[in-house]
Amino acid sequence: MYEHETYEAILSRMLSRIPDTIDKREGSIIYDGLAPAAAELAQMYIELDLSFGLSFADTASGDYLSRRTAEFGVDRQQATKARRRGRFYGAQDAPIDILPGSRFSLNDLDYTAISRITVGEWVLECETAGAVGNQQYGALLPIDYVPGLVRAELADVVIPGEDQETDDALRLRYYETVNEPAFGGNVADYEQTLNKMEGVGATKVFPVWNGGGTVKCTVITSDWSEPSAAFLAELQTAIDPTVNQGKGYGTAPIGHTVTVTGVAGVTVDVATTVTLAPETTSGQVQAPIEEAVTAYLLGLRQTWADTEQIIVRVALIEAAMLQVPGVIDVTETELNGVAGNLTLAAEEIPRVGTVIVHA
């Protein structure tokens, strides 16, 4: 209602209350006296409209949305730190141990050793919160002197770091909590419990998957990839520890035997033939086409939890390739050597393999 109260409308209404026997023309004393007040009222109506929108979950943003969802116990998830596997070698590439708290750097990020996996392998925690800690691989440089260290490398992600939850993601989770109440080990309970855990991107729940009282929860990480064995072990312990399984020592109700598994990655090799614009070479389009395929498969992984099974479609891959500058036609596209769509199982996700482009 407030957006319709414009400056002109307010001023016109104020002037209409002044008798016509008094000069109300622009420039008159009455007009000049009312105009500033009308401008202030118009600004007030604008601010009231903004405040009105910030009071509802569907239009609120930022801290106002956080305060609104917190009233229902849905708190915005803060950025978390990535945990990575670090490998350390001494002379003749022999694995060596380091001290807890040892710090290393890779480009502009620093990592701290927090726990030992085995000889020469440690879990490193990125000192910078967010998904940025998941992205780099390669040689680490010690920040402090480490006796006997010849080479150190940053390897796979153990638990992915996450950026602070966006407004859209928080709003969606709020709606799920309100509209799909979690109770006593129902499907919504498992989904909401796992999805709010650090490093989890989405969950599929399979009730009674192996007889009465059994539940299988399959998760994908927050960076939309397969979870590591160490990460799955942490989730399993939190939900239903394998020791005394089904006895209610985790968040699962007593009598529920829960198995936490991870999605399985299926490599998708793409081969295609493209027609190029004049003066465009295959070398110019190779990398952009690989990026287009990678982005398409990432989009499919992000929808995994909301679909019964993922279908990698040739037509959509070709459509993505056609967006690459210099590509004017795409034909003979094959996925894993087959000229047709690739249908994955319910717990499988696609990951990019080789992309061969014939021009």
Rank of each mutant, 00 (worst) to 15 (best):
I159K: 01
D63Q: 15
I18H: 05
Q78Y: 07
G250E: 04
Q77Y: 07
T6W: 02
A79V: 07
N134W: 12
N107Y: 08
L154V: 08
E176W: 02
D306F: 12
Y2C: 01
G101W: 10
V178Y: 01
L300A: 11
G337D: 10
R351L: 13
I328P: 01
V119D: 06
Y249A: 05
N134P: 12
A252E: 00
L48M: 14
E348H: 09
D269P: 02
A57I: 13
I289P: 09
G184N: 08
Y190K: 01
P142Y: 00
D23K: 08
V263L: 04
E291H: 04
G185R: 06
I349T: 06
D168E: 15
D156E: 15
L65F: 14
V260M: 02
D269S: 06
S12P: 00
P147C: 05
I254M: 07
V258A: 06
Y296E: 12
I143Y: 05
I356S: 14
Y190C: 03
G340I: 07
G353Q: 08
L140N: 02
G86N: 04
P181N: 04
D75I: 12
I159P: 01
D93K: 07
A70N: 09
A320H: 09
P278H: 10
L15G: 13
R67A: 15
P227S: 11
G120C: 13
D223V: 13
T251H: 04
V314P: 02
R103L: 10
V146R: 01
Q43L: 11
P95S: 10
T242C: 02
P142E: 00
Y249M: 07
A42I: 06
E318C: 14
T275Q: 11
V132L: 10
G211C: 02
V215Q: 00
V330F: 01
A252W: 00
R68G: 03
I117H: 00
I317D: 03
G199P: 05
D144A: 14
T69F: 06
I117Q: 03
L316M: 07
D32E: 15
V187L: 03
Q323Y: 06
E308D: 12
T251Y: 08
I22N: 07
Y175K: 03
V150T: 06
R25D: 13
G250Y: 03
P241C: 12
L322I: 08
L34F: 15
E153K: 13
L297P: 08
R67Q: 15
T272R: 02
N210H: 03
P95L: 11
P253H: 05
Q245T: 12
A229C: 03
T6E: 02
G62A: 13
N195R: 09
Y2M: 04
P253G: 04
T218W: 00
A82Y: 10
E291C: 00
P36F: 09
S102I: 01
G53M: 13
T214H: 03
D168R: 08
T280Y: 12
A233L: 15
I311L: 10
Q236A: 11
A182S: 10
R171N: 05
I143P: 07
G90N: 02
S61P: 10
L322H: 01
L54P: 00
R116D: 01
G353E: 09
G248S: 05
S115Y: 11
L154F: 07
A320S: 15
E26V: 14
V327Q: 00
A39V: 09
R103Q: 14
A35S: 08
F88W: 08
T259F: 04
R87M: 11
M1D: 07
I114L: 11
T112K: 15
